[in-house]
Amino acid sequence: MPGLFSGLVAFAAYFVGAIGYCIVFGLIYTRLTAHDEFDLIVRQHNASAGLAFGGALIGFALALAGAVHNTRSALEFMVWGLVAMLSQFLAYGVARLLHPGLSNAIAQNALASAYWVASVSIASGLLAAACMSP
């Protein structure tokens, strides 16, 4: 039974840490974009903004899952979580570089642009997770 308890404590610590990282990621990511995700998603029901932001969050969560899986301490998790976050910001920068009107397109609810940035984000998250091997 002691192993179960320590496993539950570890689960709780990683889960709370991952949720905290997701909140921080969302707050920073929405400041990096030129469009206002909250307004577009919540008030205007813009599907493109929801898809783009959701893809970015999924991509980050995939990379963060790699960090959880491959770390052995809270400090390691914090470092690799930061690496995961930075890799997502870099992925968004690349997506925006290759599609200069990305934010305007998303604000105009252009689904092709949303699929583009969501795909880049998810691909980046998968690659980052795979690269976080011990």
Rank of each mutant, 00 (worst) to 15 (best):
G7K: 14
G20F: 04
T71A: 09
Y14H: 10
M132Q: 14
I41V: 12
A95Q: 04
V79S: 01
A63E: 05
A61P: 02
Q88I: 02
L82Y: 08
D39Q: 15
V94K: 02
M1H: 13
L126E: 01
G93I: 10
G101I: 08
V16M: 08
A118R: 08
A128D: 05
A128T: 15
M78Q: 02
A114W: 07
W116S: 04
L64C: 09
E37F: 13
V24H: 04
I58D: 05
N46C: 11
L4E: 11
F11R: 10
A67Y: 06
G7W: 12
M1E: 15
W80F: 13
A84D: 06
A130I: 10
H69N: 10
A49P: 00
N46F: 02
V120Q: 04
A49T: 05
Q108W: 02
I28L: 11
A10C: 12
A13Y: 06
G17H: 05
D39G: 11
S113Y: 06
A13D: 10
L64F: 09
A107F: 05
A130T: 11
G101M: 05
I122E: 00
A56R: 04
A56I: 03
G101S: 13
S6R: 09
L127E: 01
A118P: 07
V42L: 12
G7S: 13
L27V: 15
V83Q: 01
L51W: 07
N109E: 09
V79E: 11
T33E: 09
L8V: 13
R96A: 14
T30P: 02
G50Y: 03
L127H: 01
I58V: 15
Q108P: 03
F38N: 07
F25P: 00
S121T: 10
G59M: 04
L98F: 13
P134K: 08
G66Q: 01
V83M: 07
A67F: 03
V68I: 10
L126M: 12
V79A: 11
F5W: 12
Y115L: 15
M85I: 11
Y29E: 13
M132T: 08
S48P: 07
L82W: 12
H69A: 09
G125H: 07
S124E: 06
G81H: 08
G50V: 07
Q44R: 15
